[in-house]
Design a protein around this nucleic acid. Structure first.
Length: 117
RNA sequence: GGAGUUGGCCAGGCAAUCGUCGCUUAUCGGGCAUUCGUGUGUUGAUAAGGGGAGGAAAGUCCGGGCUCCAUAGGGCAGGGUGCCAGGUAAUGCCUGGGCGGCGAGAGCCGACGACAAGUGCAGCAGAGAGCAGACCGCCUGUUGGUUAUUCGUAACCAAUCGGUAAGGGUGAAAGGGUGCGGUAAGAGCGCACCGCGCAGCUGGCAACAGUUUGUGGCAAGGUAAACUCCACCCGGAGCAAGACCAAAUAGGAUCCCGUAUGGCGUGGCCCACGUUGGGAUCGGGUGUGUUGCUUGAGCCAGUGAGUGAUUGCUGGCCUAGAUGAAUGAUUGCCCAAGACAGAACCCGGCUUAUCGGCCAACUCCGACU
RNA sequence: GCGGACGUCGUAUAGUGGUAAUACCUUAGCCUUCCAAGCUAAAGCUGCGAGUUCGAUUCUCGCCGUCCGCU
């Protein structure tokens, strides 16, 4: 297995996982995105994404945003501590270009790893 | 060459690196089940191979398949469709035809049955709006007045009893059109032509068309996306349907109602059919399990039938199946510079969004031969 | 994914084919020393696009938006 893989162990899969994060989270906020994190007992960080239909209307855009968030997480995974992260999309998220979203996420990952360290 | 109409097709490409979801094969390791054992099944990791969104995947507006309720049966209610014929699993779709409208043409558009069955509706304006109606006007008569007079009356004015649908005016709409006759003035009152209805005949499966036929006699005004009538169609719910596994809408406790001409069984009511209690609360326990899930009214090619939609036969092909949900990111090159946009049970249509490009057939205009 | 309901002044609601109504709000005036209350007046709406009709908020169709229910 390569170093930058992204398999099912690295995702939040069930509502109980999400509840765990929401109940006691360390935030990292920007106008378009909110990141919530909480330390887990695993050996790697895990990612969950919520973007509601109300915030981003088109399925096509929701898929695009989720792909880019996953891709960014995959590339920055080695830098992150062992935490569960939930990415919450907000209104206006679909206005960002791919480049803008990547740089925004990089900032937020760094902020999170500082706070959780 | 320009302008246009119709039908069909494509939906950026290539390379490198990293990554994602199924499938197949191989290797490795562990657990479980089974076996005396080899082994087999299941599961995990790695590697390789091959596959992985659309023409609209969208809206959910129709029609079906499939599943459960009864094998979905009868009636009422309700809803839908609406020129004719054909196609289809079926349709509100498609094809061909008819009729009407638009266009110079190729072509395009049309909820296009019935108001000479019944009931209703039409504000304001206007005299009158429904087996109509007299405001102005036109005309006969009567009465009164004035003028003229051949003393019989005549003309004009006013009032009034009537007649009249030609003209004016109102309105979205005022009960055929033109001409001649006719009349006090008029009028389908009569006649001619045109238009219209009904019947016959001819052509056509039919819608409908034609008619040098007969007849009516000018009505039967408009409106059915008003009720309604006529013809045809429709049982309800939806994969969060449903099925399987485990104790699993279970089993248990308490209370209330009911005890059969009753209750329940899925979505209006009655019948019929099936079944035999129903409801509330408490307590306990528990899945984001497996399946349904992709081979299908499937696609491609050839050929036969048909004007066509479509369909018969033969051969070939397998082309997403996720379940917090997969096609992406970065870089480089090329060009016509990339729009709208992401499957969630599956098909057939319709509608809506959409950068551009290609092909075929046809129409009109111009030039040349 | 499936099913259902609703769009009328800034807000909450009426309106069954003929000039779109009511209350609060807003603005102006009167009243008051001033404010509030009260009185008077004004302004401001049928989600969008087609169709039927003489005429559409109303009837029909298509879009757009909002809300609700079903693991």
């Amino acid at each position: 297995m390569g170093e930058n893989h992204f398999s099912r162990e690295l995702r939040l899969l069930t509502p109980t996982h999400f509840e765990y994060v929401f109940s006691n989270a360390i935030p990292s906020v920007s106008p378009q995105l909110t990141l919530l994190a909480r330390k887990n007992d695993k050996l790697a960080p895990r990612l969950g994404i919520t973007i509601s239909k109300k915030r981003v209307k088109r399925a096509h855009d929701r898929n695009r945003l989720k792909r880019i968030i996953r891709e960014s997480f995959r590339l920055q995974r080695q830098v992150l501590p062992n935490v569960d992260i939930v990415v919450v999309g907000k209104s206006g998220l679909d206005k960002l270009s791919n480049q803008e979203l990547f740089s925004l996420l990089n900032k937020l990952w760094k902020k999170l790893s500082q706070r959780c360290a």
